[in-house]
């Protein structure tokens, strides 16, 4: 099968202005300016197959949106090559745009003062969707999540969740082969989040649309993506399945502990102090265990350890001797902590 997106060694550089501090600095900036070059994207390559759902992750400013802009054709890479749907997106932006859909979590692309259906009607013309496909899609969306009752509602009167939902539907209206979703669940409540995720999953499965999803919400990743790509400081640091990543961290265990009696409510500062003490105590006990750490997690103190460095039972016994453990749970490492560890540069 041929890939739908193919990226080969792309780079993108920007010139950025260095600002001076204070009122004096502002006056100096008037007359002379310092520029420096920023490598926003640094030698990234990847290939995405039709129907894949890829989580595109990275901390803020890692170069995610720059890459997406290059894939959508509104930005030209400094060097390297991109092929989307067999075309070079930045040499023919409008042609490329026929076959992709884009959603920005916070920015609606719908007509603010009109019912959604009016926006859809315009999109029908813009993308030259034929009548049948258009009607079929409207009915399909209705059957899928009951979107029909939203069609006549004015966009500005919608909740953020409803608006996002409609924005996503709008991006699938012309049956694009690739859809880029930028933080689709940002700012939504739990139930709306899961509704949006269901929608995305269904559209991806049933229409076979390739979805590139950027997000900071690991819930999105867990629920939707089988493959993740992580970039940081413009460089790609991971590109593989999420299971592999987890199994790589399979040796990690999280032990959650409570020392105080149930009735007692501990202050957060006190808890943090306790976790800190515990961490230095454990570090002194198990000198070789680099990954060993303790932190506060809600009302719990959570201890992270790696089995091949030190056995979990040993750690628990050691703590038991020092303090009375009132409550305890065991957990595998969450995606959230895996990603956090990668961002923090703990893993190569």
């Amino acid at each position: 099968m041929e890939s739908v997106i193919k990226i080969e060694h792309i780079n993108k550089e920007f010139k950025i202005l260095k600002k001076r501090e204070g009122l004096k600095g502002s006056i100096k900036d008037l007359f002379s300016r310092d520029y420096s070059t920023l490598k926003a994207v640094n030698d990234i390559s990847m290939e995405i197959m039709p129907g894949e759902m890829v989580g595109y992750l990275g901390p803020n400013g890692a170069g995610k949106s720059t890459t997406i802009k290059m894939m959508t054709g509104i930005l030209k890479p400094t060097s390297g090559k991109i092929i989307v749907n067999g075309k070079v997106p930045y040499t023919n932006r409008t042609q490329n745009a026929e076959d992709i859909g884009v959603v920005f979590g916070q920015r609606t692309q719908l007509w603010w003062a009109l019912p959604v259906i009016e926006s859809f009607n315009i999109l029908k013309e813009i993308y030259r969707i034929d009548k049948k496909t258009y009607q079929d899609n409207l009915e399909y969306f209705d059957a899928l999540i009951g979107a029909g009752e939203l069609y006549q509602k004015t966009v500005r009167q919608m909740s953020l969740g409803q608006r996002t939902l409609c924005d996503i539907l709008a991006s699938f209206l012309h049956n694009p082969s690739v859809v880029f979703l930028d933080e689709p669940t940002i700012g939504l409540d739990v139930s709306m989040k899961s509704k949006i995720r269901e929608l995305i999953r269904a559209l991806n499965k049933e229409k076979g649309t390739t979805v590139i999803l950027t997000t900071h919400d690991m819930g999105d990743v867990d629920a939707l993506c089988s493959r993740i790509v992580i970039i940081d400081k413009g460089k790609m640091i991971y590109d593989n399945s999420i299971e592999k990543l987890r199994s790589f961290f399979g040796d990690y265990r999280t032990v959650k502990l409570k020392f105080n009696k149930k009735e007692e409510v501990m202050q957060t500062e006190a808890l943090e102090k306790e976790a800190e003490d515990l961490q230095s105590f454990l570090k002194s006990q198990f000198k070789g265990a680099k990954s060993l750490s303790a932190s506060v997690d809600d009302k719990w103190i959570s201890v992270l350890l790696k089995e091949d460095e030190v056995h979990m039972m040993k750690v628990i016994n050691c703590i038991q001797e020092k303090k009375k453990i009132r409550d305890m749970t065991l957990e595998e490492i969450s995606t959230e902590s895996v990603i956090k560890k990668i961002y923090e540069g703990d893993i190569q």
Binding site: T72, I74, T94, N96, I100, V102, F104, R107, I126
Partner: peptide
């Protein structure tokens, strides 16, 4: 505000749109 970007993804002439 950055809202301009939304015009860039449509398969029609940007100025026209």
């Amino acid at each position: 505000t950055g809202d301009f970007i939304k015009y860039c993804f449509r398969p029609v002439n940007l100025f026209f749109y």
